[in-house]
Design a protein around this nucleic acid. Structure first.
Length: 391
DNA sequence: AACGGGTGCAACCGCGAATCC
DNA sequence: GGGATTCGCGGTTGCACCCGT
C-alpha cells in the first residue's frame, strides 16, 4: 500500500513563493512554532476560502473588506487582479459559526485554482530559506574546505555535512557541491567521488588491467568522469613511464609529504579537538594531506594532487583495485558513523564529547526543543467544509 | 534584438525512518 | 502491535538569469 500524499495534488499551489506568502508563513511560525506542518498552510490563512467562512454574506472580496470595519481584512492585488483576501481578526480564536448554506451567496470570483501550499512545501520553504538563523550568500573558503573534507568521509550525506556549517542547509551544501565543488575538484584532476587524483586511479588501472578492460572499468568506477579518465589515460601514460620508480623523492614519502604540506604558507588547519586536521592549499586549490584526526587515515588521504606522488605510491605496490578503494571508503564511512554514534552515547560523561558533531547536534536539539515548546491553540479548518456550505 | 546554451538555485518528489494513536 | 501520519533526507527538476553568438 502506497503512502498517501500529504495533501491533495490538485489543490496545492506550486512554484515560487511570493514575499506575501513568506511573510505569512514566517509570522505564523514565529507565533506558533512548527509543531504540525500539515496545519500550517491552513492556519497561516494561505487561502481565500477563509473569506467565505468569515464573511459568508459578502458577495465580493471588496464587500468583505468593507464589512471588516475593525480593519481585520485587507485585499491583496497582484497584476491588477484580486489574489487573496487576508483576514487576521479570527486568527487566534475559533472562527464564527457556520451559517446555513441557504443564506450563503455563491462566490463572486472563481477560486484561483490551487490556493493552498502543502505542509511539506511550507516546511521546505522554512528550513531552506526563511529560518532566521540561515546564512545566505557566497560560501567562504573555509566552508568550502569543510564541505570537501567531510564529503570525502561522509559521501553525499548532506545533512551531516551541513551540520558542520552553521547557517547552511543541506540543500545549500548539495547545490554548492553539484554546481561548483564537483567541477572544481574534477578540474584539478581529483575524482569527486573517491577524492583521489585521476592520476592515481589511472596508475592503478594501467598497472592492473589490459587496455581493453580499462574503458569498462573507467565507466563503471567513475561514471560521468569517464571522459576525463580516458583523456588522462591517453595523455599521461608516457609521463608515468618517465618517473624513476627506483628512487622516489624523499619529499614524497607520505610522512615527509605531510610535513611539507603543513609547513607551507597559506594552509588551513582545523582543530576538531582531536588533533590537527590539515587540509587544503588556500592559494592554488586543494591538496590532501593524511592526518591522525578522527576523520582521516592514510588509506583515505593518500591522494595527492601530484601525479608523481600518486605514481610513487602506486609503485610501492598497488594494493587496491578501484572496487577495493570503494569498499575501503564504505568501511571508512561505517567506522565514522560508529564513531559519531559513540560520541552521542558518551554524551555529557566526558570522553570526546567536545567533538564538532556532538556540539552541533546538541545545538540542533536545543533549537528543536525550543521550537516545539510553544503552546499552540490551533484551529484546524477543513477546506471541504468551507466549500460545501459555500456552493 | 533574438536566440540558445550554460549555470545556479529554489522547489519538488519519493522513499525510509520516526512518531503518533 | 500495527496502521496511519509526519518528518527528514537525497536525488531530481524547473526556471530565471546570464552570456555569447
Amino acid at each position: 500500500m502506497g503512502r498517501i500524499p500529504c495533501c491533495e495534488k490538485e489543490n496545492v499551489k506550486r512554484g515560487q513563493w511570493t514575499p506575501e506568502e513568506d511573510n505569512k508563513l514566517a509570522s505564523y511560525i514565529a507565533q506558533h512554532g512548527t509543531r504540525n506542518w500539515r496545519l500550517i498552510p491552513k492556519n497561516a490563512v494561505l487561502s481565500q476560502l477563509y473569506m467565505y467562512f468569515m464573511f459568508p454574506y459578502c458577495i465580493s472580496p471588496v464587500e468583505a473588506f468593507v464589512s471588516s470595519l475593525d480593519g481585520s481584512c485587507r485585499i491583496l492585488w497582484s497584476r491588477g487582479r484580486f489574489e487573496e483576501l487576508v483576514c487576521t481578526a479570527y486568527f487566534d480564536r475559533r472562527p464564527p459559526p457556520v451559517v446555513p448554506r441557504s443564506r450563503c451567496q455563491p462566490p463572486p470570483l472563481k477560486p484561483l485554482g490551487a490556493t493552498f501550499r502543502c505542509g511539506k512545501s511550507c516546511r521546505l520553504r522554512w528550513t531552506n530559506y526563511l529560518r532566521p538563523d540561515l546564512k545566505h550568500g557566497q560560501f567562504s573558503d573555509a566552508e568550502e574546505h569543510i564541505i570537501v573534507k567531510f564529503h570525502s568521509v561522509l559521501g553525499n550525506r548532506w545533512s551531516l555535512i551541513a551540520a558542520q556549517l552553521p547557517g547552511r542547509t543541506d540543500n545549500d551544501v548539495k547545490n554548492y557541491w553539484n554546481t561548483k565543488l564537483k567541477k572544481k575538484l574534477s578540474g584539478m584532476g581529483i575524482d569527486p567521488v573517491t577524492h583521489k587524483p585521476f592520476s592515481h586511479l589511472m596508475a592503478e588501472i594501467t598497472t592492473t588491467l589490459n587496455p581493453p578492460q580499462v574503458s569498462h572499468l573507467a565507466e563503471a568506477a567513475l561514471g560521468c568522469f569517464k571522459d576525463e579518465m580516458l583523456h588522462l589515460l591517453t595523455k599521461k601514460r608516457v609521463d608515468l613511464n618517465q618517473i624513476n620508480f627506483s628512487s622516489p623523492n624523499p619529499n614524497h614519502n607520505p610522512n615527509n609529504f605531510n610535513q611539507t604540506v603543513d609547513n607551507e604558507a597559506g594552509k588551513m588547519k582545523l582543530d576538531n579537538g582531536n588533533g590537527i586536521m590539515k587540509l587544503w592549499d588556500m592559494g592554488n586549490g586543494f591538496s590532501y594531506g593524511s592526518s591522525s584526526s578522527s576523520f582521516g587515515n592514510d588509506e583515505r588521504n593518500e591522494g595527492s594532487a601530484s601525479p608523481a606522488v600518486a605514481a610513487w605510491r602506486g609503485h610501492g605496490g598497488i594494493r587496491t583495485s578501484v572496487a577495493e578503494t570503494a569498499a575501503a571508503g564504505e568501511e571508512e564511512r561505517r567506522k565514522l558513523k560508529g564513531e559519531v554514534m559513540e560520541q552521542e552515547e558518551i554524551g555529557s560523561e566526558g570522553g570526546r564529547g567536545d567533538g564538532m558533531m556532538m556540539m552541533m547536534r546538541r545545538q540542533h536539539d536545543q533549537h528543536q526543543q525550543h521550537a516545539f515548546n510553544v503552546d499552540n491553540d490551533l484551529w484546524d479548518l477543513q477546506a471541504d467544509d468551507l466549500i460545501n456550505h459555500m456552493v
